[in-house]
Design a protein around this nucleic acid. Sequence first.
DNA 1: TTCTGATCATAG
DNA 2: CTATGATCAGAA
Length: 219
Amino acid sequence: MNPPRSIDELETRATALAGRTITELAGQYGLAVPANPRRTKGLVGQLAELALGATAGSRPEPDFNHLGVELKTVPINASGSPAESTYVCVAPLHPRAGTCFEQSPLAAKLAHVLWLPIESSSQVPLEHRRFGFARLWQPTPSDWALLKMDWEELTEQVSLGYVQSITARHGVVLQLRPKGRNSRDLVAAMGPEGRLIQTNPRGFYLRARFTADILSRSL
DNA sequence: TTCTGATCATAG
DNA sequence: CTATGATCAGAA
């Protein structure tokens, strides 16, 4: 699929996915839906990228960079709420002094998001899960304030060498959590007393409750 | 039932 | 290794 030329075109394509199943979309791109759910974690997002013409690949920039729009699929549980937190981007473990929230990759990605709901109830087999109605979101001033507060707090702790003291319990809307191959996956980071340490790579995630709030504002 | 820390797949 | 796409699974 060629990249959408406008936000309108992107929205039209995304809206057309409502009601389509994983199997339908996978078949359209000649992909199989693996039987083991543990081994299919990124499939839904990658199908959505194919269907909508995303361009960023694995670069640290919005999926539709020319439109400034980031695509996020969001798993919806049997109760109709987001089932999981949403990964946003890698968290630098050696932040440069003077980097500000407004210039951060996180802010760039969240400035404009296309949320694409997908069924995720364990009652529904992966192959039969359907996409929901997509919607565009831009953070309100209040959203930005919450994000900025969390980002600045977490980034400051990291830069002071306290990354290993940060848990997923920190942050009102943002979390800093492990994001690696597994717990043996190590990278260098600033530790206490200015010494370099080895620790797990981390990523920024949006709490499911925050995503639920965002989605509840439209539709 | 919800949430955190761990884990799986893939591209470059 | 770094980044993307995320969800899994046991603890709380």
